[in-house]
């Protein structure tokens, strides 16, 4: 069998899956999705109270009522609104240290750590990834430069690196942003060779940024807005 025949058969098979899929009425879909969001948020909040505080509610006995466990604040949930529910990426316990000529850690003034793998890494804030006070473009979009590193990348050998960066709006309906393909290059004594891709974020909120370079992929979640999330424990 030749490729085209096989690929067409595979395509039809996937298409048939779509045709057989149940299709809820759209109005009901909106209702069910809203319920699911509330349920997910409530479940996460409940789990966090039980796990983090580890308390047990004592049922009333002989007229005495035991105090309920103090409710903790939820941090990351699957609810779709609010900066409190944005699961911003924070550094792990063991920051990544590149083995290449790149600096072992970002300069102190950036208050960041390396995040990623030798194939593709970036810098994230030590307190969790937040972009605030971004420049505003003429069309109202929020502009941000993103920096990326990779083992073996040298700025003058690859001035237009084939890196693409996508930003997806996790808690809203803004369209996905894509930039790069190619990016541009940069170098600095404190940062070594790096790739640069500018993003134009259409609105504030919770965004997942994903870069792809030479088969490697790296994602982080960032809150874009003027204020920090209230709780990031």
């Amino acid at each position: 069998m030749r490729f085209e025949e096989f690929a067409s058969r595979a395509g039809k098979a996937a298409s048939d899956v779509g045709r057989r899929a149940s299709r809820p009425s759209f109005a009901r879909l909106v209702r069910d999705r809203h319920r699911r969001t509330l349920f997910a948020g409530l479940s996460a909040a409940t789990a966090l109270v039980v796990i983090v505080f580890g308390t047990v509610v004592l049922w009333p006995e002989s007229g005495r009522v035991a105090p309920l466990a103090a409710a903790g604040t939820t941090t990351t949930t699957l609810a779709e609104d609010g900066r409190d529910s944005c699961p911003v990426t924070a550094p792990g316990n063991i920051p990544f240290s590149p083995a290449s000529e790149a600096p072992e850690a970002p300069p102190a003034l950036y208050d960041g750590v390396w995040f990623g793998t030798p194939d593709l890494w970036t810098m994230v804030d030590t307190q969790g990834q937040i972009w605030s006070d971004l420049p505003v473009g003429e069309d109202g979009s929020l502009t941000q430069k993103t920096f990326w590193w990779a083992e073996g990348y040298v700025f003058d050998r690859e001035p237009l690196p084939d890196i693409t960066v996508t930003a997806e709006h996790l808690d809203g309906a803004a369209p996905t942003v894509q930039a790069g393909g190619p990016g541009t290059n940069g170098t600095h004594p404190d940062l070594g060779s790096f790739m640069l891709v500018g993003l134009e974020i259409p609105q504030e909120g919770c965004w997942e940024v994903t870069a792809e370079y030479r088969g490697a992929s790296l994602s982080y979640v960032v809150w874009v807005g003027d204020e920090s999330p209230n709780s990031r424990t």
């Binding site: 996937a14 298409s15 899956v17 045709r19 899929a21 299709r23 809820p24 879909l29 999705r33």
Partner: peptide, 23 residues
């Protein structure tokens, strides 16, 4: 809707994920 589900199914390999993401 059916076409989008089929498309996402090819990209994810899961019917449930395809329906959820299409929705």
């Amino acid at each position: 809707y059916p076409a989008v589900v089929g498309l996402v199914y090819g990209m994810t390999g899961s019917r449930w994920v395809a329906e959820d993401l299409a929705q």
